[in-house]
């Protein structure tokens, strides 16, 4: 579904991504592990089109999307739920969700159907739908962010550290939802520092360090890998 070949990205002269080659197959849940500053968010933003790659090729279902605008990527079914959520804080929860379906704005019936599914998945959002998104708790805002991304009806959903700054119980809920979304057929690329929780629901994982992919493997390999355990699980 998603394929990167030798992708580089730069901030001025600093090379933030160095020759990234990876792939995500339809239906998979792939985890991207990495410490702060390793390049997870840069990689996501490059795939989403917020940053232009300095080199390399990105394809979606075999179609070259390298350097395309973010709106083109969303229309192609690649939707990112960003780190820090990036909600519209002054707007109601409902408007945030509706804007998530912006690319499907002409399909009102379809949008309302997706909205119902999202509200069924996160019942608390139904209760808070008229409140400004900025007034919600961190966990609820994360649900709005995931819900907003789902409103774009992604084929590939990219979640950038959805557990960041949330209480352990809320983190557990978020991961349950991520697993559910994947089980319902959406391919997921999940960037996490919370390696153990993420690997438990993953099919495969990549490890990114200083802008390079240094390791990859399926769940069992990664959970059993001494280096991964030391660096990201702490056991």
């Amino acid at each position: 579904m998603l394929k990167l070949e030798g992708v580089d990205a730069k901030y001025d002269s600093f090379k933030a991504l160095d020759g990234i080659s990876m792939s995500v197959e339809p239906g998979e849940l792939v985890v991207l592990l990495g410490a702060n500053g390793a390049g997870k968010t840069t990689l996501f933003n490059t795939i989403s089109g917020l940053m232009k790659p300095a080199a390399g090729r990105i394809t979606i279902d075999g179609k070259d999307v390298t350097g395309r605008k973010p709106s083109a990527l969303v229309a192609a079914g690649v939707v990112q739920c960003p780190e820090g959520r990036k909600l519209f804080p002054g707007m109601s929860v409902l408007k945030n969700l509706r804007l998530g379906g912006y690319v499907h704005r002409r399909d009102r019936a379809g949008m309302n159907r997706t909205l119902e599914q999202v509200l069924a998945m996160f019942p608390i959002l139904d209760e808070k739908k008229d409140e400004p998104a900025g007034s919600l708790s961190g966990g609820q805002q994360q649900m709005v962010a995931v819900g907003r991304a789902l409103m774009g009806r992604p084929k590939l959903l990219m979640l950038d550290e959805p557990s960041l700054g949330l209480a352990p119980l809320v983190v557990k809920q978020v991961f349950e939802r991520v697993e559910q979304i994947n089980a319902e057929g959406t391919t997921i690329l999940l960037a996490e520092q919370n390696a153990y929780a993420a690997l438990k629901i993953a099919n495969r994982a990549y490890v990114i360090e200083n802008g390079r992919l240094t390791m990859q493997g399926d769940r069992e390999e990664m959970l059993g890998n001494e280096a991964v355990r030391k660096a990201y699980i702490g056991a």
Binding site: Q80, P82, F88, G100
Partner: peptide, 14 residues
């Protein structure tokens, strides 16, 4: 309004 409230968020919804 979305663009004014969060530019990147606006890009990410397309």
């Amino acid at each position: 309004i979305a663009m004014a409230q969060n530019r990147e968020g606006a890009f990410l919804v397309g």
